[in-house]
């Protein structure tokens, strides 16, 4: 329940998120929050929602802690055909990756960092029906 309230409140705080496309990805985002919470994960509140042109990537850094299991869930909206997600450690070594093959609009990867540090996350919208489409990324830990 709390994440639903969080998503709703954050949406109120961000008027731009009330565009239809972003509204559309909020429902599956909420469903995935429940899914991960049921698996014992604490889902982080800073749910990232955005839009990408076909073939473009969204990049971000994050600090991960050794001894914790993390998940990253990347999902596109209805018109998205293919996405991929890659996570690098500080030495630019790939530590987790996933991509959708054929049908499927979501990717989930988990990782257990051996050492704490800054990790680099790259989420790519490989293909979609329109010139751009909406997506969200959930992250959490347990």
């Amino acid at each position: 329940m709390k994440k639903f309230v969080a998503i709703a409140l954050v949406s109120l705080l961000f008027p731009v998120m009330c565009f239809a496309g972003r509204m559309d990805v909020r429902k599956p985002a909420y469903e995935q929050v429940l899914n991960y919470e049921s698996q014992g994960f604490s889902v982080k509140d800073d749910i990232q929602i955005g839009e990408l042109e076909k073939g473009r990537s969204y990049y971000f850094n994050t600090q991960l802690t050794a001894g914790i299991e993390y998940f990253y869930h990347f999902q596109g909206d209805q018109g998205v055909n293919k996405i991929n997600l890659v996570i690098f450690d500080e030495n630019w070594k790939v530590v987790a990756q996933g991509n959708t093959e054929g049908e499927g609009k979501s990717i989930a990867v988990t990782l257990n960092p051996e050492w704490s540090g800054t990790f680099h996350v790259k989420a790519t919208l490989v293909d979609c029906n329109a010139a751009f489409d909406y997506w969200f990324i959930l992250a959490g830990y347990r």
Binding site: Y59, T62, Q63, L64, T65, Y141
Partner: peptide
């Protein structure tokens, strides 16, 4: 590689404590 520095997802202190 420089693109990543544009965005940072901050951790919660809870992650350190939990570990």
């Amino acid at each position: 590689k420089k693109e990543f520095a544009q965005n940072l997802a901050l951790p919660s202190p809870a992650e350190m404590f939990l570990a």
